[in-house]
C-alpha cells in the first residue's frame, strides 16, 4: 500500500493528463467550501473591525471627555485669574489715584458670632495700622479698624450696629448718621441713615457718601445707595426726621482684599483722577 502511494506520488510529478484532470475536478469540487469559508472570514473580519472601531471610539471618547474636563477646568481657572487680575488692576489704579495713603490687606477670618460683623485682616501695628482707621475697597466703604495686634487687625464693618458714620446724601445734600442694621432685611446686612431732615426729598438709588465729619472717615467715600425711606412715627423729636435704608455698595460677605487708609498722601504727589474733574469725592469712588 505504501509502495503504491509512493509510486502514485512520483507519477503525478510527470503531469499526466489524468492526474491533471483529477486535480482540477477536486479543486472545482472544493470551490463552494472555499467561498463559504471566505465569506465567513470576511464577516469575522468585518465584525472584528467593527468591534475594534467601537473600542477605539470608546477609548477616544474617554480621552476626549478627559480633555474636555481638563479644558473646562482650565477655562474656569483662566476666568478666575482674569477676574483676579481685573480686581488687582482696579485696586492698583484706585490706590494710585486715591488721595489717601492706602495699605492693602487680605481678609483672613470672619467673626464667628452672628451678633457682630467684623473681619480680621493680615496687617497689624507692624505695618503702621492703628485703631480707628478707615477701611475701604474700590467699591466703597467697608468699615474701620477696632482692634490691632502686631500682625493682624480687626475691622468693624459698616453694617454693624456699633459702626456709626457721618454721611450726606448726594442729590438731596442732607446730612445724617449711617448706622449698621445687620439684623434687618431678612438677615441681609444693611444700614440705616438717621437724623435725615424730614423735608428732604430722598430718591431711591441715591448715593450716600461719607461727610468727613467725625475725623475717622475722609469725605467722599461711597457708603451705598438708598433702597427705601420712611418717616419716623415716634413721638417727640424723632418725628422731625426720616429714616433712610441704605444698601451698602460693597458686598461685605465676599470681600477678600481691602485697603486701610493710614494717612493722606502729600499734595504734590497727587495724580488727576481718571475721567473726573479732580474733585475729592470722585477720586474715592469707582462707578
Amino acid at each position: 500500500m505504501l509502495g503504491l502511494l509512493v509510486v502514485l506520488s512520483i507519477l503525478t510529478l510527470f503531469r499526466f493528463p489524468l492526474a491533471e484532470r483529477f486535480k482540477e475536478d477536486l479543486s472545482d469540487g472544493f470551490v463552494p467550501f472555499l467561498v463559504f469559508s471566505s465569506r465567513i472570514q470576511g464577516s469575522v473580519r468585518l465584525l472584528s473591525h467593527r468591534f475594534k472601531g467601537y473600542y477605539d471610539l470608546q477609548a477616544e471618547n474617554t480621552k476626549l471627555r478627559k480633555d474636555l474636563s481638563e479644558l473646562s477646568a482650565r477655562v474656569t481657572q483662566v476666568a478666575e485669574l482674569e477676574r483676579e487680575n481685573h480686581n488687582f488692576r482696579a485696586m492698583l489704579d484706585f490706590k494710585d489715584r486715591s488721595e489717601l495713603k492706602l495699605i492693602s490687606a487680605r481678609v483672613i477670618g470672619r467673626d464667628p458670632s452672628n451678633w457682630w460683623n467684623t473681619v480680621q485682616v493680615d496687617r497689624g501695628s507692624l505695618d503702621g495700622i492703628t485703631r480707628d482707621m478707615p477701611v475701604l475697597t474700590v467699591e466703597g466703604l467697608v468699615g474701620k479698624t477696632i482692634e490691632v495686634t502686631p500682625n493682624s487687625a480687626r475691622i468693624l464693618l459698616v453694617v454693624d450696629e456699633n459702626c456709626k458714620v457721618s454721611a450726606w446724601l448726594e442729590k438731596s445734600s442732607k446730612f445724617g448718621i449711617v448706622q449698621g442694621n445687620a439684623l434687618a432685611g431678612g438677615g441681609t446686612p444693611q444700614c440705616r441713615m438717621t437724623f435725615v431732615d424730614r423735608s428732604a426729598e430722598v430718591k431711591k438709588n441715591e448715593q450716600v457718601f461719607t461727610s468727613g465729619l467725625g475725623g475717622i472717615f475722609p469725605k467722599g467715600i461711597l457708603i451705598g445707595v438708598v433702597s427705601s425711606t420712611a418717616v419716623e412715627t415716634g413721638s417727640g423729636m424723632s418725628t422731625l426726621y426720616q429714616d433712610v435704608v441704605i444698601r451698602p455698595s460693597v458686598d461685605l460677605s465676599q470681600i477678600d482684599e481691602v485697603f486701610i487708609g493710614v494717612g493722606v498722601k502729600p499734595t504734590e504727589k497727587k495724580k488727576p483722577a481718571r475721567g473726573s474733574g479732580g474733585d475729592f469725592e470722585k477720586r474715592h469712588v469707582v462707578p
Partner: peptide, 13 residues
Amino acid sequence: MYDSFSGGNFGAS
C-alpha cells in the same frame, strides 16, 4: 477661643 476670634467683649460667651 470663640471670643478671641469675635468682635465682642472677651468673656461674652
